[in-house]
Amino acid sequence: MIVLLGVLVVIIGFATRRNPLLVVGVAGIATGFLGGLSPQKVLAAFGDGFASSRAVTIFVITLPVIGLLERHGLQEQARNLISRFSKLTTGRFLTLYLVLRQGFAALGLRDLFGPAQTVRPLAAPMAEGAAERRYGTLPDKTREKIRSFTASADNVGLFFGEDVFLAVGSILLITGFANSTYHTHLEPLQLALWAIPTALCALAVHGGRLLRMDRTLERELLGARVELATEEAAK
């Protein structure tokens, strides 16, 4: 039971907003010792963990080219482009992004889109650009909100698209675990089919929320503008 203290360290650390690296480092060391690992084993666990998880960090290879393009106006051009499609509101654009992300992930192409490749340089400025066309300069709070929702469309599309694909890690984990532990025989195809209902729900729920964002933006931004105008008039 005492090894669960490590979990407690993590929860308290994140809740009190300590530096996450420190929280995770301390929790790892504490759990290792409580679980009876020697200091040498704990060090080795940190080393092995780092070495086997390098794949999550490789997106940095795209940063130089993305950075170079941004210096030459990539984000500005993304805004320009979106403003030519007057029907494409922020909510509709993000829903379209969600559909594409989920569709490609379901085909097994999960690295096609991503926070570094598409969200920061293209999708987020386009979503902002669509709102700017309607409401002019955006307050920082709105900008943050639009960016957060762009990141959310990327994640939801990926998570609930990839499981429809047969050869994805989570499906293979399920068949591997069940077949070896319980001596049964599950096929990846059966599992992928059962991911479809939830995938459709995800599209409906998150797509619906993204579309509803247009109304929220209108209420917030036009409301703010009316307030500003009445203040001006009162002067």
Binding site: T31, G49, F50, S53, V56
Partner: peptide
Amino acid sequence: MLLPQLLATLGTIFAVSGVGKQV
């Protein structure tokens, strides 16, 4: 940048220390 890799490490340590079994 370092956090995702560190969290993967924590997951491994949780596993070998028996956190999963306790849960």
